[in-house]
Computed example of a mutant assay.
Amino acid sequence: MIKLAIDFGTSVTKIYKLGSGIVLAEATCVTVQKDTGEIRAFGNEAKRLLGKTAEQTDVCFPVYEGEIVSERLAGALLEYFLRKVVKRGASVEALFCVPCGYKVESREKVYRVAKAAGIGRVNFAETPFLSVLGQDVPLSESNPVFAIDIGAGVTSIAAFSLDGIIAGLSMNVGGSNMDVHIIDHIADTFSLKIGSLTSEKLKNTVGSLIEDDNQSTIINGRDIKSGRPRSVSVSSADIVFPIKVYIDKIAEYADLVLKKLPAEVSAAMLKNGLYLSGGVCNIAGLAEYMSGKLQMEAHLSGDPQMAVVLGGGRAVGNAALLRRIRLE
């Protein structure tokens, strides 16, 4: 049986194949013909068409804020991804990485989508456990850890040990919120209309929480007044507000989780520090900023976007560990 760990994310789907490592990282995206409902493109190919399609074609994201919003599109997309990494007809067991506190109804949707895509056995594990496993942090019953995973659509925050989650939550805040806010901010500041792909690229290239960071880049868009194409230079300082407002909200909720902890657990948190993961954590200075906000050392994964699926890979390769952390 082929064993996979699947992070079916709002923005990007990652798949880890036991014995091979990470075998896929593609946009969770499809294009659909409006009149027939036919799916025309999948994954990265579909995302490249964002903002460039004709009237009769929609670019759709079947996962929104961690929830499957179209089982038909999600099933077709997952099946497409599986064909790229597994031979047709192979027996597959998959561990799905899901947000902290993921509801039973939400898991049932994922289960139906997985079955429709041809997966034989389905397990679930929450993101906080997997994110620290992906950073090679040892888990035990007596040594609790604190983790924050900031994805595109969902942020998971939890204090936990191998015995389970002590306190935690998930919130619908992430990189996608920042992208939308950056679009509005650029329109207000520069009178320039930009698209989602440009906004995401801007966040990823010059987005920074380092004070006085002077990185800059040239972006192209449409002048709001004249309607003509125009270019402007945008610096880190120009987009710090639409990034910081969401990071501050995440820090606020992380502080609430910390305040719920028993005294001994709090002492362990202070000693062990905070473990950060998720694609948003690639923003320059984010780890140091969160460290200052929460007054504790912050550890950043070497590859934040892949930490969760790497942890899923460790879990599918260790039956005893998987039994401890999987959701029943």
Rank of each mutant, 00 (worst) to 15 (best):
R326N: 13
V173Y: 05
A287H: 10
G313K: 08
I224D: 03
C97N: 13
G101L: 06
Q56P: 01
L300M: 12
V137E: 04
L169F: 07
A251M: 02
T36A: 07
I68L: 10
L24M: 15
K193T: 10
S91K: 15
T28Y: 06
V232P: 10
G285K: 05
Y64G: 00
I165N: 03
A254M: 09
Y275W: 07
I325H: 04
V23I: 11
C281H: 14
G174Y: 02
L270D: 06
I119H: 02
L49C: 11
T10S: 14
L286K: 08
E297D: 06
G207K: 01
A267S: 14
S277H: 09
G21C: 01
K52A: 13
A5S: 15
A54N: 12
A27S: 15
V316K: 02
S176N: 14
L274R: 14
Q295R: 12
E79T: 05
P99N: 03
I6R: 04
L261A: 11
L139D: 00
G153S: 10
S191L: 14
R230G: 05
R228S: 12
I166T: 12
G207V: 12
V104S: 05
G153C: 08
D223S: 06
I68Q: 02
E200I: 02
L4V: 08
A251W: 01
M296A: 10
K47G: 00
